[in-house]
Design a binder for these strands. Sequence first.
DNA 1: CAAAATTTTGGTAACGTTCCCATATAGGTT
DNA 2: AACCTATATGGGAACGTTACCAAAATTTTG
Lengths: 336, 336
Amino acid sequence: MKRITIKDLAKHLLLSTSTISRALVNDKNIHPDTKKKVLDAVEKLGYRPNPTALNLKYGQSKNIGFVVPEMITPFTSKVLRGIQNILYPLGYRVIITESDENPLIERKNLLLLEEFNVDGIIINLCHKSYNQDLYQQIMDRGIPLVFFDRIPGKSLDASKVMVNDNIKASLMIEHLIDTGRKRIAHIMGPSTIRNSTERAMGYKRILTKHGIFDPDLMVKTEGATFEHGRSAAQQLVDKKIEFDSIFAFTDTLAIGAMNYLLEQHIKIPEEVAIASFSGTELATIVHPQLTSVEQPLVEMGEIAAGLVLEKIKDIESPSKTIVMDAKLIYRASTLG
Amino acid sequence: MKRITIKDLAKHLLLSTSTISRALVNDKNIHPDTKKKVLDAVEKLGYRPNPTALNLKYGQSKNIGFVVPEMITPFTSKVLRGIQNILYPLGYRVIITESDENPLIERKNLLLLEEFNVDGIIINLCHKSYNQDLYQQIMDRGIPLVFFDRIPGKSLDASKVMVNDNIKASLMIEHLIDTGRKRIAHIMGPSTIRNSTERAMGYKRILTKHGIFDPDLMVKTEGATFEHGRSAAQQLVDKKIEFDSIFAFTDTLAIGAMNYLLEQHIKIPEEVAIASFSGTELATIVHPQLTSVEQPLVEMGEIAAGLVLEKIKDIESPSKTIVMDAKLIYRASTLG
DNA sequence: CAAAATTTTGGTAACGTTCCCATATAGGTT
DNA sequence: AACCTATATGGGAACGTTACCAAAATTTTG
């Protein structure tokens, strides 16, 4: 039951621990025969190296923290997948914390991760400014921070990866206009997130350009859950605001809205078209399937992992901001 | 930038490391004044304990492995939430690996986690028998294994937590019969998972009892994705098998099937009612909302975490099998 | 006031591994 | 044979922390 260590091997083979270590670490200063003997004993006794010892010795925990608002929708899962693709083969572990869209919990989670001695943190923040001071502190203490999707104010010198919200939102609005929609409503994301503002700006810009902008068509929300989407759609209907399409901040909001409309026997897309930002299966598991801006989430995770590795290797390496491309995918919710 | 250690504190305060340690660990053998001085210095110099040192000393990594088929649907996320509820406050970290429903990847992941030196593993397996030998080996090497949802054959002496698939499936079929359905199809789960068989048995038993069982109504699938659900529904339609309702192995399969039917302009629930196993938001984000067996997923995670902690504390403690209750929730997909 | 009892502190080994330095052995050159 | 150079191995410190035992300082007791 007791773990076999390098010392046990040494005792068993009547060698020093140094020699055993050399065999294990592919040092050239060792006789091939000795090396073979050691490797055989490793097999026979079932030795497995203890990473904790190395972590202590080299002052690294080989843990990366992952701080996200939630893991219930597939959005975060896909990014995580990308992160793991890069980090697991390198022997890093990923520790996940969910902040429930609450900046206070996010704060607690960040401190917890520091306590856990992580080598770096990848974060999708839940409030654009609330924890700015802590982000800075953590980086000052030598723990690199990498932001994805929702990024902080630019005063913070950290690596970031996201899509161009403003432009992609514009393109989606152009699509809705191209398909003959004139009364395009926007279910906004929470104002505490940068992306909300960016996407709303893209929306507003195009509608203004075409001279069909109407502030009544913008619905504010406090969050981005299905329920928020539902009640946003309900508001539009209740206030008797005329609309022939919806552009929602996220697929979650879009689906919430869609469900409400379907319950009211409003036909999609005939009476109301729906489009949003996505990148997950959510866009395709609903009926009709959702037209959306497909963000490359797995790749985003891979890039975020790469960025944090750069910083771990050299904390002084310059921060990078990577803007990824996203494709517009047209599906049944706006076509037909 | 360099990390402050207990030695730095000792040097700074002209005390021994032992005394510092005593102050930090709430030992009674220390003068209150000294303790205060130490605690002040901790604050001032920004000392944070290094958990890695303790891990090495006590032979624990404080890491728990989490092995699951996927993290894209909310099922696993919810269980994870429960696990974190219990383990994070105790200073444990959770390392997640996804096996993509592939026993070979699952095998690789288990070995990786062993490499990572985890203190225990919580697993939702992807094949009822394929890795049975490895499960046993890992436990033999002193790492406790706890199974949830999909459990292995009973020859394996390990703690487990799940719901009673057979009974809950029966109750759901009774519900469909109560609401007037007579041709109830069953989209089965993969035969490589115990739960599939259990749920199918419950289904068959009740239909047989009512004398309306027809093997043509059972559709086999190779997996449990949306696509599998779609094609199962398509099979039923293509083969012109008459059916007025579907009981699906999971919500994912149910939604896939539902989408196909909706595309064929088949009315739900008027023409076909749909029910399944769930416990996630998936059941409520679709239209119409799905009637389902709501499994208590967060609680399941909490219990799994508790079971693994018991085994960590005392590897000899007896294994437990916990069967949780699940509620049937009737929604629009079978009502009206 | 000395002796005993108690409280407070210091010294050090240990956890598992690697790496530097020193030592020993082998082989090769005069 | 004496020397030199490679090659191969051993010894021990270090990473940060705690736990044990020993030693010192303080308080209590007769």
